[in-house]
């Protein structure tokens, strides 16, 4: 067995251990607090734990299937996220072909470019080609009502749901000396740090939260939760250095950047939700709202993480 798969195995056992522990705690809380009727907080926690099991198993299966499995998984995530996003924006009949091409042409091409490892086009396809071509498709129908708003929203939807999200599987294309064949662990590192940061912010906030950090955007987020979550997720990230090409200090620093981006990404996406007058992006995952509700922090941290690693560690 090579080191990549033995590290992955250790990681998988570790994650399963954490999830089994979480499920056991959830079960005990339910016995304790929900004996005489449902308890919203405990039910929500248990729904979240159940959804994590599903996520971990799905990501695990994708890792087993290799590069194609990871690409297909994230292409589907982009599809579902784009569907949630477009549901909430101001589209008109005249945008029909632009939207159809976003789903059925732009999205598949972006993931194909990853498959073909065409980094040069991958990095500019949506910011340049889609950016210029989509408004052209929309303008051909001659409907100028709220035109700037409509084309801006479609571009934003593509940037967030397809361009940014595709930077998670893009980690597979990096060529880091001494780290060959282990890139899948970079995805695991990113996803674990971001998700743990979300969870730990929630837990710290529930335990010690006093001061609201952004009452207009997200009433449940507190300064105590933010500080506690970021510090503890950074420390856990540092302790995962052995699955990365980084030293413990570098792994901690990168985790710090990831958790900050994730936190502010969550704020930006809640501001968008507030603007559209909804509480959740959708109902895809029980207990988690929509897919974007779970992916917002990953989507904001993935491109920065990718480019930092690419600039300082990668050859290509």
């Amino acid at each position: 067995m090579n080191t990549a798969s033995s590290d992955l195995l250790t990681l998988v056992f570790g994650i399963f251990g954490v999830l089994i522990l979480a499920s056991a705690i959830g079960y005990m809380l339910q016995r304790r607090f929900s004996a005489n009727g449902p308890n919203a907080a405990v039910d929500n926690l248990n729904a979240r734990i159940k959804a994590w099991w599903v996520m971990v198993i799905l990501i695990g299966l994708a890792f087993i299937a290799g590069r194609i499995g990871v690409l297909v998984l994230f292409a589907f995530c982009s599809f579902a996220a784009l569907r949630e996003f477009v549901t909430l924006i101001n589209t008109r009949r005249a945008d029909h072909w632009a939207l159809a091409s976003a789903f059925f042409i732009v999205l598949p091409i972006q993931y194909y470019l990853l498959w073909a490892e065409e980094y040069g086009i991958f990095a500019i396809f949506i910011p340049v080609y889609a950016f210029l071509l989509m408004p052209i498709i929309s303008v051909l129908r001659g409907d100028t009502e709220r035109f700037l708003l409509r084309i801006a929203e479609v571009q934003w939807a593509l940037m967030i749901c397809v361009f940014c999200a595709s930077h998670v599987p893009a980690l597979l294309t990096l060529d880091i000396p001494g780290y060959e064949g282990r890139n899948v662990l970079l995805i695991a590192f990113l996803v674990i740090v971001v998700q743990l940061s979300d969870v730990l912010q929630y837990v710290w906030g529930k335990l010690f939260g006093r001061t609201k950090i952004a009452p207009n955007l997200s009433p449940s987020k507190t300064v105590e939760g933010f500080v506690g979550g970021v510090i503890s997720a950074t420390l856990i990230g540092a302790s995962l250095w052995w699955i990365t090409p980084f030293t413990p200090f570098q792994a901690g620093l990168l985790s710090f950047i990831i958790t900050l981006m994730g936190f502010f990404g969550g704020l930006v996406m809640s501001a968008v939700k507030r603007d559209r007058g909804v509480k959740d992006w959708g109902n895809l995952i029980e207990g988690h709202g929509g897919l974007i509700d779970r992916l917002d922090s990953v989507v904001f941290s993935a491109p920065i993480f990718f480019h930092v690693v690419r600039y300082w560690w990668s050859l290509s």
């Binding site: 784009l82 009949r93 029909h96 159809a100 789903f103 959708g282």
Partner: peptide
Amino acid sequence: MPKGEIVPIPLI
């Protein structure tokens, strides 16, 4: 799928 279109747009 508005009237007259042939490709559906995925929306929830």
